[in-house]
Amino acid sequence: MSLVVGAVLLVAAVILFILQPMLSGRRVSLLRDMDEPTEAESRRRVTLLALRDVEYDYATGKLDETDYHAMRRELAAEALQALERVESEVAAGPGGAAPALEEEIVRLKTGLRAGTTCAVCGTDNDAGSRFCAYCGSPLVPAAQANPARPGTA
């Protein structure tokens, strides 16, 4: 007898547990999350990782100097392009971007072009810095034609 009662209770508990959201209207989100990277952002992240690999490959003598400079320029340009796409995604969002945000983007863009904003962690560094004061990544001026070789001088 107690067995039958136990079984019924178990079945009832399971059914209630699963159907409760549908009956009470509770729901979970099925939307992409706020802080989940978009495709453009992942693109940018991947580009930055590739940049890190290029730096490493060059520092350990796996890349020729000419290839290294060419690839660095390409990747820095790609990173910038990806960032611009991130911006346009933000602007295309409902209501557009807040003015403060636009300023922020302009600041980042200028910083990245000049090579003072770290492309990896977003920290602003003093002009003339070659490595990020916060995370230590090399600072890559996107527009600079012939960047200094790391580890020398």
């Binding site: 999350d33 706020m34 992240r45």
Partner: peptide
């Protein structure tokens, strides 16, 4: 988080939540 470059925090945090229909995502 040292293993991976973080996303620029300011931009990411300010991005509003957008509905992305499953079929159109990506």
């Amino acid at each position: 988080g040292a293993g991976e470059p973080a996303r620029t925090p300011t931009v990411a945090a300010a991005r509003p939540r957008r509905p992305v229909p499953a079929g159109a995502a990506g």
